[in-house]
């Protein structure tokens, strides 16, 4: 296990270097309208998808954590997730529901996304039992915020030469992404500065509400008038296959990188809890010694 991390780190570094070569290489065509600046997409879009995935994992882990506190709630949540998965997938192929989907959005893409809810729910429940769910939640939230920060930084850098402005005030895609970032920053602040015994529960509840912003961010370009470009995949986008190929490879590389960062952050959180437990134990031992020392005095004072 100790050797696996450095090996994976080297492989990921090579993969990321290859992605950079592809993203800037002459084999990848230049956009006819935007020129080379469009290549920001190879960092901006994979970062956004990675952030969404991490927030989704955070959402599932938070639900699992909230449900795990009571066996009856846990059983009920399990069935709710199964029902959501089955009904959601079937509904996507019903004509009345298909009419509600935005033009160009494939029902199979929506069904796959819905199906991910029960799949992730059971996988996370299996591999992260008990308090490790909370560790996973804080890990994915923090790494997700880092990727979301990159989205919010690279977006305006692309917008300046293409739109002529850094930020389009009032644009629903941009604003909802900023709100998403703020929600998860407040989630991390709550965890950092609150010393209440209920902090983990409160944070999990906040994460569940925060995750509701993810679909709003994703679907905003379909349902609202926005300056943001239309989706490149899953919604009838017309991207050159060579560009799409590089974009998908770039996302794979960023996923590998995010996995390694999450792994490190997960270990850090475990170490942090170990130190906290050691501090608590030390305080208890100290208090025990003090109580023993003061016991005869208490007795004699009666």
């Amino acid at each position: 296990m100790k050797r696996l991390f450095p090996i994976l780190s080297v492989l990921t570094a090579i993969f990321l270097a290859y992605t950079l070569y592809l993203a800037l290489g002459k084999d990848t065509p230049t956009d006819a309208q935007q020129g080379d600046v469009y290549r920001i997409i190879y960092y901006h879009v994979p970062s956004a998808w990675t952030a969404f995935l991490l927030f989704f994992i955070n959402f599932i882990a938070s639900i699992q954590y909230l449900a795990s506190k009571k066996p009856s709630t846990q059983a009920a949540a399990k069935w709710v997730v199964i029902v959501v998965g089955v009904v959601g997938v079937i509904a996507c192929f019903l004509p009345p529901v298909q009419k509600l989907l935005p033009v160009g959005m494939r029902p199979s893409a929506v069904a796959t996304t819905v199906l991910l809810i029960p799949i992730f729910y059971f996988l996370i429940g299996k591999f992260f039992p008990g308090d490790s769910l909370d560790v996973l939640a804080v890990t994915t939230a923090e790494v997700g915020v880092v990727f979301c920060t990159i989205v919010l930084v690279t977006g305006p850098i692309w917008a300046r030469p293409v739109w002529g402005i850094w930020w389009a005030p009032g644009d629903i895609r941009l604003t909802s992404t900023l709100v998403l970032w703020l929600i998860y920053v407040s989630y991390l602040m709550l965890r950092r500065f609150s010393n209440s015994a209920q902090t983990q529960m409160l944070a999990a509840a906040l994460a569940v509400f925060g995750a509701l912003d993810v679909p709003l961010v994703y679907f905003s370009i379909w349902f609202f008038r926005t300056q943001h470009p239309q989706p490149v995949i899953g919604g009838g986008g017309s991207m050159d296959p060579r560009m799409l190929h590089v974009l998908v490879i770039s996302w794979m590389a960023f996923l590998c990188f995010a996995f390694l960062v999450c792994w490190s952050r997960f270990r850090l959180e475990l170490l942090h809890r170990e130190v906290e437990a050691a501090h608590a134990m030390e305080s208890l031992v100290g208090a025990g010694v003090a109580a023993t020392a003061s016991l005869p005095l208490n007795r004699s004072s009666r």
Partner: peptide, 28 residues
């Protein structure tokens, strides 16, 4: 000269990742 924006975006990305990884190492 739009290329400078492309370079700035790529540098900013790795700068943010670098700062975050640095903070993780420090905390460790």
């Amino acid at each position: 000269n739009a290329i400078k924006f492309l370079i700035a975006a790529y540098i900013a990305t790795w700068l943010i990742h670098g700062v975050y990884i640095g903070s993780l190492v420090q905390r460790f």
